[in-house]
Design a protein around this nucleic acid. Sequence first.
RNA 1: GCGGAUGUAGCUCAAUGGCAGAGCAUCACACUGUGGCUGUGAGGGUUGUGGGUUCGAAACCCAUCAUCCGCCCCA
Length: 425
Amino acid sequence: MANKIQAVKGTREFYPEQMALRNFIYDKVRKASQAFGYQEWEAPFIETIDLYAAKSGEELVKKQSFTFEDRGGDFVTLRPELTPSLARMIAAKQGELTFPVRWWSFGPFWRYEQPQKGRSREFFQWNIDMLGVNSPEADAELIAIAATFLRSVGLDSSQATIYVNNRRLMESEFNRLGIPAENWLSVSNMVDRRSKMEPAKWDAYILDGGLNQTQLDGLKATLANGDLWKQSEELTRLFAALNALGISEYVKYDPNIMRGLLYYTGTVFEAFDTSGSLKRAILGGGRYDNLLADVGGQPLSGVGFAMGDVVMGIILQEKGLLPEFIPTPAAALVTVFDESLWMKSFELTAELRAAGLNVMVYPEPAKLPKQFKFADKMKMKVALVLGPDEVEKGLVVIKNLVSGEQVQVKKEALVESVLGILKNA
RNA sequence: GCGGAUGUAGCUCAAUGGCAGAGCAUCACACUGUGGCUGUGAGGGUUGUGGGUUCGAAACCCAUCAUCCGCCCCA
């Protein structure tokens, strides 16, 4: 075992059961996206490092990217996020796209970090964005999409909550407290980390960071003020729109939500599992007003969020929300009675497939108990037996593996009988 | 990059210095025209790898690799 070649650290191996979960998430993502009229798109998996150097924060680019030299001597990166590619692709066709652009995507990303619960080096991520509209109502639509998705996988508002804040509001608070603008970013990061630290340690951390005691007290009062949003016209309009969209039960105002990415400028939001067993955000996003101009396009505002498949999968598992795993899409197994009737079974299978059924045939003659056991393990609903008696009379034994009942039917009536069992099973 | 833990059968784990085991899973048989249940039996191991201590190591020591958990960062 030790000298077998192992999978690359942090990569994902999707056995059929995990693949079914990934496809389940993808299916719900697609449905939520399409319900709001968004178009699916995709970007390259490999990009130049320069694309990220501009905006994605130093940690992500220098420490967490998979970067290597290609055979031509150029440095390329496995994409760690999608938004910069989105900005470039939008900028390249800015003159011909119909705005507002509403796009979504679900694909693989790579980040070189230490694998742990909820974090791997290779992951799938849902990205969804609206570009060309700068309004709290547009922000509300993206939050509504997130809530729609959470509801669709079976997470109700008592199990998952989307916390909302606004960076402009927080910056005006920082300003009011006399914190200089050049410290806003570091103070934001400190706020972001507060929930993970002991209160006394956080206080010391803030005082070390250049704030005085009065500013610390003021900041703590701000962060405890659940009504702060009422001072923001943006957030007031946002909550009115969320109410109209029918998902306000999922949303709470929280002045502690800041988010790490540099490009957010206005509304920011993060969803969490309320039981808190996993302290990682299910999804996160916000408004970014400057990203397009930063990659060379005309100024254009956008809002969007991203959701990783790893945390989502863990939560679905912990909540018992995984769909039942069906090992095979085949509804029926055609058994092979013996060597002389082997090809008869193959012929029967071909006829059933021609009628549109997903059917598996046992690949070789074997004892019937073995074949039935196989059908059972694969959770197939129907088994068909074609023995000497049946062939002689032009019949097929059709057995309902759920109820255990079996009957002989004429070959012509077989498809209908199978469909009947599948409908009731 | 930093810190902590764990590596024994396909899986989950036991054996704490003295014969390497159990449950589950697999396969066979009971049951050669019928799965789930039951019973009987079988196969399966260089105890992650390399070295050291010892009469004797799965266990103790050193190194190494891997995995998990946490920090940093973030989906």
